[in-house]
C-alpha cells in the first residue's frame, strides 16, 4: 500500500509541477520554490518561538513574501534569480537562529515543512490534488505584467509548491519543476506541455518501481530516473531542433541555385 500511495503521489505532481515549471523557467525564477518553502519554514519556527500556532504564522509570512515578490516587475533589470537566492539565504539564516533557540522544535519543524514521499497517505494525496487544482487555476491563465497579474501567479505558485514540499519533500518538487521543462526547452522557449508531462509521468512510474525492486530510496531514485529520461529526451529534441533549420537552410539554398537567371536590363 505504501508503494501505491508513493506512485499515485508522484503521478499527481507529475501533472501539476512540469507545466508550472515551464512558467517558472520562462520567468527565470527557478529558486522561487526554495525561497517560498524556506519562508514558510521560518514562519513556522517563528510561530513556535512566539508560542503561537506555527501553521498560521507560516501562512502569514508566506503571504507577505508573495505580496512583496509580486512588486517586482517581470521586466525588471534586477537579476531575479539573485533576488530569490537572497530571500532564501535570509529566511534560512533566520530559521536557523530561531531553531537554535528551540531545541525541541527541530524534528517537528523539519517534519512539517520538509516531508517525505514515504510519509504521504490518501488524505495527503487528496490535499495535494486540491491545492494543485486551485494553484494551477490561478497560475496558468495568461496574465498581464501588472501587480495583480503577478500576485495571482505567485499565489498560485505558492499554493502548489508549499504543500507539495510539505507532503513529498524539496528534492522531488525541485526536480519535477525544472527537469522536464528544461528537457523540452527549444529555441529559447518552452516546448509542448504534453511532452514535459509525459516525461515526468514515465519517470514517476519507472523510478518508483525501480526503487521498490532494487531496495533504494524512492525520492532520489525517481529524481535520477527523471534526470536520465529528461537528458535523453532533451538531446533528441535538441538534435531535431538543430537538424530542422539546417534542412530548411539547405532547401532554401537549393531553391536559390535552381532559380532561373533573369537577364539584367
Amino acid at each position: 500500500m505504501i508503494l501505491l500511495t508513493v506512485l499515485i503521489a508522484t503521478l499527481v505532481i507529475a501533472i501539476s509541477l512540469p507545466v508550472l515549471g515551464q512558467r517558472v523557467l520562462k520567468r527565470r525564477i527557478v529558486f522561487v520554490d526554495l525561497a517560498l518553502a524556506q519562508v514558510a519554514a521560518t514562519g513556522y519556527a517563528l510561530g513556535m518561538a512566539l508560542q503561537m500556532p506555527g501553521i498560521l504564522i507560516a501562512i502569514i509570512t508566506t503571504a507577505v513574501a508573495v505580496v512583496l515578490m509580486a512588486l517586482m516587475d517581470e521586466e525588471t533589470k534586477l537579476p531575479k534569480e539573485a533576488v530569490m537566492g537572497a530571500v532564501y539565504a535570509f529566511a534560512a539564516s533566520l530559521g536557523m537562529i530561531l531553531l537554535s533557540l528551540l531545541p525541541y522544535g527541530e524534528g517537528q519543524l523539519m517534519g512539517l515543512m520538509f516531508g517525505s514521499i514515504l510519509g504521504i497517505n490518501w488524505e495527503g494525496i487528496g490535499i495535494l490534488v486540491a491545492f494543485s487544482a486551485i494553484g494551477l487555476a490561478l497560475a496558468l491563465p495568461p496574465h498581464s505584467n501588472t501587480y495583480h497579474g503577478r500576485l495571482r501567479f505567485y499565489s498560485g505558485l505558492c499554493l502548489i509548491i508549499v504543500p507539495a514540499i510539505h507532503a513529498i519533500g524539496v528534492l522531488l518538487v525541485f526536480a519535477y519543476l525544472v527537469m522536464p521543462a528544461l528537457s523540452v526547452w527549444r529555441h529559447g522557449h518552452n516546448g509542448p506541455v504534453w511532452q514535459a508531462t509525459a516525461i515526468t509521468a514515465v519517470a514517476s512510474i519507472i523510478g518508483t518501481l525501480a526503487a521498490h525492486f532494487l531496495d533504494l530510496p524512492p525520492s532520489a531514485t525517481v529524481v535520477l530516473t527523471l534526470g536520465v529520461i529528461s537528458l535523453i529526451t532533451g538531446i533528441i529534441i535538441h538534435r531535431k531542433v538543430i537538424d530542422k533549420p539546417r534542412s530548411e537552410e539547405k532547401r532554401a539554398d537549393d531553391e536559390e541555385e535552381n532559380k532561373p537567371v533573369t537577364p539584367s536590363i
Binding site: 505504501i2 524534528g107 517537528q108 517525505s116 497517505n121
Partner: peptide, 17 residues
C-alpha cells in the same frame, strides 16, 4: 519509538499502515 528530534512522518505512515 522515535527520538524527539527526528521527523515522525515516515514512522507515522508506517504505524498507521
Amino acid at each position: 519509538w522515535v527520538e524527539p528530534y527526528n521527523s515522525r512522518i515516515i514512522a507515522r505512515r508506517l504505524a498507521d499502515e
